[in-house]
Design a protein around this nucleic acid. Sequence first.
DNA 1: TAGTTTGTTAAACATGCGTTCAAGATCGGA
DNA 2: TCCGATCTTGAACGCATGTTTAACAAACTA
Lengths: 214, 214
Amino acid sequence: MRSRSDDSTTKARIRDAAIRLIGQNGFAATSARAVATEAGVSAGLVIHHFGSMRELKVACDDFIITEVTHRKVGMGEGDVSAAVSEWYADLPTFEPWLIYLGRLFTDDSVAGADLFDRLVAMSHTMLAEGVASGAITPSADEHARAVLLVTHSLSTLTLQSHIARSLGSSQLSLDSLSRMGNAALELYTHGIYTPSTTPSQEGPGSGPTHDLRH
Amino acid sequence: MRSRSDDSTTKARIRDAAIRLIGQNGFAATSARAVATEAGVSAGLVIHHFGSMRELKVACDDFIITEVTHRKVGMGEGDVSAAVSEWYADLPTFEPWLIYLGRLFTDDSVAGADLFDRLVAMSHTMLAEGVASGAITPSADEHARAVLLVTHSLSTLTLQSHIARSLGSSQLSLDSLSRMGNAALELYTHGIYTPSTTPSQEGPGSGPTHDLRH
DNA sequence: TAGTTTGTTAAACATGCGTTCAAGATCGGA
DNA sequence: TCCGATCTTGAACGCATGTTTAACAAACTA
């Protein structure tokens, strides 16, 4: 169930501690000594195993990205959403990874940028297939739609603390996730506007939510 | 056009410099000396005017939140989207504010949490009005829908660097924003699925984008 | 068993941090 | 003009940081 995350070497324990702390507080707010304490080792050992804090960060990025892309036999390589679904299904175990994954896109790393671009490419392909098969309506700007959908998907990760709080649970929970999932399904199925009344032209504002000027 | 942001007092210059740096790099990665240099003053003056770095952060939060909520005569108080639209319309001037606003939701501050909750409440009200007038379809879970729409709206802010890069511009641009706006309009008007074929049940994954398992 | 590599710690080091302080510059009101 | 208050600086202080080093323990290799 856990792949190689529970190789219980000290180096892995340090990396896991770093993933927890960096995910929770961001890289800049995470000190080598804090990681050491969290992992139950000395500060020197953190540097001995990873060379520097920067390299530790890169190691964490690589680990998370590998876990989220090259998962399990039987999965298409790069099937990120299947991996994330698996993580959601066992929150107590994988919550730190989900939090770190969200942090990846707001802490700006090259790893985060690369993953984002790959997700857009995948989304693009899937949408094109859906359009070809008739399951999905075409868009006037397919690339913008792909970017929009990836952005929306990732917002569940980057804003997870606010979502959880607003939905009443202190942390991520299966209940919150399925409520959000169902709301998203509604949205993606028929939008929110009734067929007759469609707003004229959308300004470049923060989205239709607050742009219901009729 | 600019409200009181260009009161050219030294204190305001320091605050603006802090908004730029904290927005760009996050609070933890922003030192008092860096703010001082950016503002063209000494480090001591930063503390003299604001008391401490923490209080400077609070002052920046307060300033941005005031600017984004209590704007202009003729606006309904708390009309955040109108303010943000105005900011978008003059990017060279307001880009730092937009970046800071995005940072507000990922750096977790009480100010960010409060604003998020207020946005959800506003979204809730507007959706209810739309449903009552027949312009918007009802949802099985109105609260979850409100949270979802706010989350999606804010993702344009929190992930703006990725959006810009993926759409080909190095920074935020009016072109990128209107492309995203139009894609969102499409989505909110009719979703992405064709009326006949609707996916069965949505898992709690990262969203329908990658969940097109047919 | 002896020797070499690896794992690990505690102390030390230089640097940069937030903040304080003493001193001067600048200004408005008497 | 003088004075008190405010603005501003540069140096200093104590502290936490990332990293280095020396020493030692453990484990493999011969």
